[in-house]
Amino acid sequence: MKLGDIAHSRAGDKGNISNLSLIPYNELDYLFLKKQITEEKVKSYFNERIKGSVTRYELPHLHAFNFVLEAALYSGVTRSLALDPHGKTLSSIFLMMEIDPEEYRKYRHLSLSKTSDNH
């Protein structure tokens, strides 16, 4: 199971910093992503690509996250030798991250039963 099965993303660039939004298709999955897609996990997923730190900002009203990746663009669009100097394609590469389907199934089961308890 891939991250892209349950969420979407868009990449932006400013200088040598990339930002990746992460937005679940279903608002219910916000807390699952909050637990699973940590700063450490994103940093190690992109491995040597990101030379700097990863910061995750949470937007609970929008059920979305914004990941800010420092020193991620080979010194930025103006000097980069990369084929995609803006790092535009990083969003869809992000969505290839593996999700544990068992964990996801358990989470969904729990949150759905919680939701029905509330009614």
Binding site: H8, S9, R10, G12, D13, K14, I17, N19, S21, I23, T55, Y57, L59, H61, L62, A64, N66, V68
Partner: peptide
């Protein structure tokens, strides 16, 4: 939502010449 977060860093502190906008 995709566009609101496009090319911003801290959504609470989006610095512009006119204001520090807070999109949080």
């Amino acid at each position: 939502t995709e566009q609101l977060l496009y090319e911003i860093h801290d959504p609470k502190n989006y610095i512009t010449p006119d204001v520090i906008a807070d999109f949080s």
